[in-house]
Design a binder for these strands. Structure first.
Lengths: 234, 234
DNA sequence: TGATTGGTGGCACTGCGTGCCGTTACGATT
DNA sequence: AATCGTAACGGCACGCAGTGCCACCAATCA
């Protein structure tokens, strides 16, 4: 005599089951530890069979991750929809928006995930691998657009890594600051400061040369400030 | 009746066993595939017991990796030995040298590892996690030295990610180019071109202002070249 | 020669992930 | 409303990764 199936087959039912599993995994991992929590514990807490867990997640580590596959597709769609002549820097910054949405829209879960990925080696490695897929995606799209330049491949690789690093840094600051919903715009603004550090292209339109001059002065000021101020004085 | 133990307990014996396991793993993964190769297959090919494998490696994925823990310690030692007033850019570039040594000193194994990490998802994720530990190490050391600057944390994160990305890009180019030993210097030179893209500090000494001016002109030229040349023309 | 130490091999065990299959609920068709 | 097809579910069994435990053997020392 099998236990009755509690849910239907609709999309809402699937989302509900998935949400139950994620919440159960986050709670159990946080309370009892990652290694001490088995998949059986998660499925028992969520009220589903063990086999069902592996129909929603590839493995135990993925139970705490949001859906990165659809997010990757959205990022790629931003690049695909952009015109070839669109200035590069704003496009790159805009392409990161879907990732921000993924985290900023659910602050509580994002913070719980952050704490787990900070403290548990297996989940930290998983996160690093996930972040690397975004870096590779940015790298591919940038390489297409920078192939003609001298050191274009290098600039593409460096820019992709820079954007992803700044993105994660902004998210991290937002999370340690309490993940307040009203600070979401500040989080995005923090990220966009990386614009001044990108090596590949200024974010100003091509016909605004005064803006270029302004930017050049900023770069010069920053460089002069750097020299003689390298490292911390004791 | 147990099989006789074939090796002693010396350090050479341990290195020999480890080398046999790495070579067996590389060969079996390449020939029969990663998922199709079990730890039993590796230990049988290396002539040791299954239990011994897990005394040399944390898991199946680590059997193809060089020793990143000692390499991380060497990188950190470079930072620890540097004076606080040393210019930042050359220090950062120099800190990457131990990683180059790790790969450039064994071209054949490096190429075999590269092919495996390129094609096998589990090993690619493992590699990404390993690279991320270097990125975090650079980030910590740079954050110490940039804490006083405006946007110092952001600059530290971006610079760390840039250096690691350029490093891996140079290694990758060297590997796909055949991993020729005589091209090792060219590999390092490719990496050092990232210097022109680093946002944090010029690599010139603090008293050479003419060099700063030269660099500023290079930056300006690159920026002007960028505007109006964004993206590829069809 | 006897005791100690440290690496090794074998064994058993837990837990992850998967293939397979019977079952069950939902939706569509008539 | 009865029926059929489909898709998700639960359960079972299996292979394999990784670990704790213990006996064994070789080298060193008393």
């Amino acid at each position: 005599m099998a236990a009755p199936v509690r849910r239907g087959r609709s999309a809402e039912g699937r989302a509900e089951v998935r949400g139950d599993l994620v919440r159960a995994a986050l709670a159990l991992f946080t309370e009892h530890g990652y290694d001490e929590t088995t998949v059986d514990d998660i499925t028992a807490a969520a009220g589903v069979g063990r086999r069902t867990f592996f129909r929603y997640f590839r493995g135990k580590e993925d139970a705490v991750s949001p859906d990165h596959e659809t997010c990757l597709a959205r990022v790629d769609a931003v690049f695909a929809a952009a015109h070839d002549t669109e200035p590069l820097a704003p496009l790159v910054l805009r392409a990161a928006d879907p990732v921000f949405d993924l985290y900023l829209d659910s602050p509580a879960e994002a913070k719980a995930r952050f704490e787990l990925t900070r403290n548990i080696a297996a989940l930290r490695d998983r996160e690093a691998a996930s972040v690397d897929t975004y870096r590779r995606l940015f790298g591919r799209r940038l390489r297409e657009r920078l192939a003609a330049r001298p050191d274009g491949e290098l600039a593409a690789a460096v820019t992709a890594a820079s954007v992803v690093a700044a993105h994660n840094m902004a998210l991290r600051s937002w999370l340690v600051d309490g993940a307040r919903p009203e600070a979401r715009d500040a989080c995005r603004a923090t990220f966009r400061r990386v614009d001044a550090m990108l090596p590949v292209a200024p974010s100003v339109p091509a016909d605004d040369l005064s803006a270029i001059a302004t930017r050049l002065e900023r770069v010069a000021a920053r460089m002069e400030n750097s020299v003689g101020n390298v490292g911390m004085q004791p």
